[in-house]
Each structure stands twice: as C-alpha cells, then as structure tokens.
Nucleic acid binder design. Structure first.
Length: 295
DNA sequence: AAAAGGTTCAACCGCGGGTGC
DNA sequence: TGCACCCGCGGTTGAACCTTT
C-alpha cells in the first residue's frame, strides 16, 4: 500500500496566500497554537493543505521572524556553519534567531554561493575550485605572458597550482592521488580564505602596496616549489578569529587603521562586500618566482 | 518605451525519520 | 513487526520584480 497523499488535492487552493487567509491562519494559531497541521485547515476554515499552512506559518507569519537584509555577522555565521554542516539549513537556521531555513537557503543560493564561485571557491567543499585549476593552462599562459603577468588568483590557489604542477612533473599516479588527498585535507576553509586579514590581506590592502609585498607571507621570496617541500609551512592554517573576520558586522570590533577589518566595517552595500571580497582574491605573481625551475 | 534577460524569494513537491497503534 | 500518519527537511519551481539593451 502506498503512502497516502498529505491532503486531498481536490478543491484545495495553491499559490500565493491572501491577506484573508493569513488572518485566518494567524487567528487560529494564536488561539490553538501551531501543530496538528493536517486538521488545522479544516478547523480554521482554510481551503489549503496542512503542509501549505505549516509552511506559511513557519516561513512568514511566525511573530518572531526577523525580516530584512542579512547582516555581515549573520552572513559570516552562515558561511561558517555551512562549511561544517553543509546544506543543513534547519541546523543553520537554529543558530540564527529570527531567520528561517527557507530564507537562509534562498540567501545562500542567490548571494553567498555566487560570491564564493566568483572568488574561485567551491561552495560545496569551501576550498578553491580544483576544476578551475587546469594547471598546465595556467602555467603555460603564465609562461607565455610572463612579462605582462597580472594573474588574479588567491595565493592559496597559486600554491595549489604550483604544487600540483611540480607533482605532475615527477610523481607517479599513486603519488599524485596521495598528493591530492593530502591537499584536500590541508586546504584552508572558505572562512579561512576569507579570514586572512591578519596575514596577507593587510598587505594587499595597504596604501604602500608593491609587488614584493604581494608575496604570500607563508612562502619565502624566490621560493621554488618542489614536491619535497610539501609541508605544513605552506599550509599554515590561521586560527579562527571571529572578531577579525572578513565579514564582520560594522562596529563589531575595534581594529587598527588600514586593516582589512576597518575596510570591511566601512562596507554598507553589496557592492562594498563584493569589492572587498574581490580585492581579497587578487594578487600578482611575485617577481622572484622561477617558473622554469618547476615547469 | 518596450522587449529580453536576470534575479529574487514565496511556495510547492517528494522524501525520509519518528511515533503510535 | 509492519503500517499509517505526522512533521520537517532540502531541492526545485515559477511569478513578480528589476536591470539592461
């Protein structure tokens, strides 16, 4: 015997709710409390199925729902939690008072996910997108355009590229698989990539910026990337510090002038956020890198 | 001014876990 | 133990709205 439908579809209304329906639902729930969604529509005089009523109540009519823009803090919380629990919207919503899972899911799909993709971060794994890293094409084009190199890649992404390139040149297939697994384990998370203002981002955002300063601080100048140098020093994972994070709510924490946090705290629009995040993921190839040595 | 394309988000759908009989 | 039902979750849809050409 198959599962019976949640409600009799015949004669039941679908689509947007009217003010009158909202009123009926709110009055009923205020009197009897939420629950018993199957019998609620009939008792409340609504031509809707229970599911539709529950959804309308939990996502829209509930009195404790917070409407309006997501704050930087909320956005940051969503990214952090998503990196841990994935698409568990209800779990994320539980940590954001007044926000519904549906609202968070929509916000993720329409705003955050796109921004991560634009910044070269896989929104599922929260790591740099390896599918975008066609190493040979990146490095070949780098070689061809060495004199006019303004590649815009996150330093972590470049490290990956150079590591993979050097590994490809010398490693067996098994070694390559091992290397890939190791790197997946050691890659910094999305939040960490967006949260490195205490390391390289300050340099990138400072007014006296120059090419030499753009060398990622965890890599020595003129360093040649070789398989033997795959070590923790290249994957220094910064300690999570919410107060310094990229997406902190304005005025959330006092920070020094010229810091990235100060910059972010001045962000008030989506454009500001986008500009900031884009800046975070830009850098130039340092002059000292010897491409020939690992090609 | 109008058409086309893009974006947003409320609402729907199907599935699965939990529970009671 | 198995079935029916309730409820909640995550994925998807489509209408409304906005932006671009």
């Amino acid at each position: 015997m198959g599962r019976s439908p949640c409600c009799d579809k015949n004669g039941l209304k679908k689509g947007p709710w009217t003010q009158e329906e909202d009123l009926k639902l709110m009055e009923y729930v205020q009197l009897h409390g939420p629950g018993n969604w199957r019998t609620l529509p009939k008792n409340a005089g609504l031509q809707r199925c229970g599911k539709s009523c529950r959804l309308r109540w939990t996502n829209y009519l509930r009195p404790d729902i917070k409407r309006g823009r997501f704050s930087f803090e909320e956005e940051e919380t969503i990214i952090q939690l998503h990196s841990v629990v994935g698409n568990k919207w209800s779990a994320i919503a539980a940590r954001l008072p007044g926000r519904t899972d549906n609202e968070i899911k929509n916000y993720w799909n329409t705003h955050i996910r796109k921004r991560l993709l634009r910044n070269g971060i896989d929104p599922v794994t929260h790591t740099p997108r390896l599918d975008l890293l066609d190493m040979s094409s990146i490095l070949n084009s780098a070689q061809l355009n060495l004199l006019n190199l303004q590649t815009l890649v996150n330093p972590e992404v470049l490290k990956l590229a150079t590591l993979l390139a050097s590994a490809s040149a010398s490693a067996s297939n098994q070694e390559k698989m091992f290397l890939n697994n190791q790197m997946n384990d050691q890659l910094p998370s999305t939040h960490e990539l967006l949260n490195q203002d205490s390391t390289y981002s300050d340099q990138y955002l400072s007014s006296d910026i120059n090419t030499q300063n753009l060398v990622p601080p965890c890599l020595p100048d003129n360093q040649v990337f070789l398989p033997s140098e795959i070590s923790d020093q290249f994957f220094r994972v910064p300690e999570f510090q919410p107060s310094n994070s990229v997406l902190s709510t304005p005025m959330s924490s006092p920070t020094p002038l010229n810091s990235s946090s100060t910059f972010v705290n001045s962000c008030s629009t989506d454009d500001d956020r986008e500009t900031y995040c884009t800046t975070m993921f830009k850098f130039e190839i340092p002059e000292g890198i010897q491409f020939d040595d690992f090609m």
